[in-house]
Amino acid sequence: MGRSSWLRRVGAGALAAGVSLLAWNAARQLGPPSITASLTVAGAALADPAAALQAVRQLADEDAQAQPAAARPMPTPQPTPALAAQSQVAEQAAASEPQPAASEEPVPEPTVQPQPRPANAGQIVTEHYEQGEGGLYIPCGAGTIKNCTSLSAAQVAQAASAGLPFSIEPGSSEPQVLIMHTHTTETYELEEKDWYAPNFTCRSTDLSVNMAAVGEEIAAQLNAAGIVTLHDTTLHDYPSYNGSYERSNETVRAYLEQYPSIRVVLDVHRDAIEPASGQRVSAVAEIDGRTAAQVMIICGADNGGNLPNFRQNLAFAAAWENAMESRYPGLTRPVLFDYRYYNQDLTTGSLLIEIGSHGNTLEQARYSGQLVGQALAALLSGQ
């Protein structure tokens, strides 16, 4: 059978599926700010069906190589306000199509099959980190700040007690918070165990198991509280890890330019605690009968003029630390106040937060994302 004849037999349905896959893959690679580019890719596919089908095969092959064996379906990204009208049109069009009858049997949740322990497995150790006392540690309500700078304890305490340096408008239709990930591909164990496979890199491009899944939990809590929150899932550390912060800087600047109402920018990460050679730590806390991954805020200090407004960020960090620890005792590790940068000059509400470590499970990290988001929503709402 000739190629042109075969293409005609494929039909409109297969072509539509191929176009959808192209758009979806383009959006995944380019991230939310470039969804328009993904639609351009789809349009090009319609103009050349043969090229579309060939691209579909290539993307499917690449996707199979990039995704882990235990990967789950990618969650539907939340549209930004600028794309809400497009989403509504798409939903109306879909609603006009005949819908299949609902299944009487509920669809079971995907499960992770237990892995056999390899002979050369590494060790995962469970730890719970307490708040610090004396020396480097400065109280901030229910939590503490670990001062790793040359500033005196009195200077840090004064800055930390200043209160929020910005105001949030719950109920406003304008975005107030941006959640993003400089190291989006950081991920966790998918099952709770005391060992890890040596070939597990703790990285994944699958948005349902990496930092995007945790960021989505935080965003959901804030949006539910009426604080409009945008969640960017751009893979800033893929395919190249080097230059991640430069790329995330560009992303944040683009959001701030488009949405000047944004007051808070949270860079959500996963820690990698290794106390000894061959060990990985699972940092945990028991909260309301469930195991949560412990969290740690990192706030940078000025170093030669790179963070002129660091005191405002520190005040925010202290208030958020207290909000989390007072509501969920044991959830937080002390705030790390050090000479770090992390693009925290972009707003006076810019912080980095580590959710667990590479020994924690995804379930523990997602639960912590819920708790972190609830405490932040209460803080920003003045509760």
Rank of each mutant, 00 (worst) to 15 (best):
L7G: 03
R9V: 00
G11W: 08
A14I: 13
S20T: 15
L21S: 11
A27T: 11
A27F: 14
P33N: 14
T36N: 09
A37F: 09
L39V: 15
A44N: 06
L53H: 01
A60I: 13
D63I: 11
Q65T: 00
A66M: 11
Q67T: 13
Q67Y: 13
P68W: 12
A69D: 10
A69M: 04
P79C: 14
P81N: 10
L83V: 09
A85T: 06
Q86H: 10
S87K: 09
Q92E: 14
A94M: 12
A95W: 06
E104K: 07
P106H: 09
E109C: 06
E109D: 12
Q115M: 12
A121T: 08
T126A: 15
Q131Y: 06
G134K: 02
I138K: 01
I138Y: 05
G141H: 06
A142N: 04
G143P: 03
T144F: 05
K146H: 12
A157Y: 07
I168S: 03
P170R: 12
S173W: 04
A197F: 02
N199V: 11
R203D: 06
S204Q: 08
V209D: 00
M211K: 05
E216M: 05
A224E: 09
I227S: 04
S240F: 10
S244G: 09
E246F: 07
Y255F: 14
E257S: 15
Q258H: 08
P260R: 08
I273S: 03
P275R: 13
N303E: 13
G304R: 06
P308E: 15
Q312V: 05
W320D: 02
E325R: 00
R333A: 08
R333V: 14
Y339C: 00
Y342L: 15
N343F: 02
S350N: 12
T361Q: 03
L362D: 01
E363A: 15
Q364C: 01
Y367S: 04
G369K: 04
L371F: 06
L376H: 00
L380K: 05
G382N: 06
